[in-house]
Design a protein around this nucleic acid. Sequence first.
DNA 1: GCCATGACGACCT
DNA 2: CAGGTCGCCATGG
Length: 101
Amino acid sequence: MTPEEYVEAVLALVERIPPGRVMSYGAVADALAEKSGRNSARLVGTIMAKHGGSVPWHRVVTSAGAFPRRHVGLATALHRKEGTPLRGDRVNMRSAAWFPG
DNA sequence: GCCATGACGACCT
DNA sequence: CAGGTCGCCATGG
């Protein structure tokens, strides 16, 4: 799988995350690990930073439920609007984490 | 090819 | 709960 195809796979998966639910960067990496031969949460973050604009990027958070520093405000607002379970400025992963399949 | 730098994460202090 | 360390994959200098 080429890097370009991997980017597409990541974006396609992010689009499937239901409103009010989230996936961590690591979970995305894990979900595509076998198919892609890669498994780096950091890489997924890099990809989201560059091509995340066209997908529901706010539904991808850190494993601790935090948002990227630059977009904390917007991401938090979007989640309040779609009813995501929040614990202060982070997502409550125990109830909001979503995984395909 | 070496090195620094990321929207990261598990683990330890 | 707040840092620091080290591994992770790709990119750009």
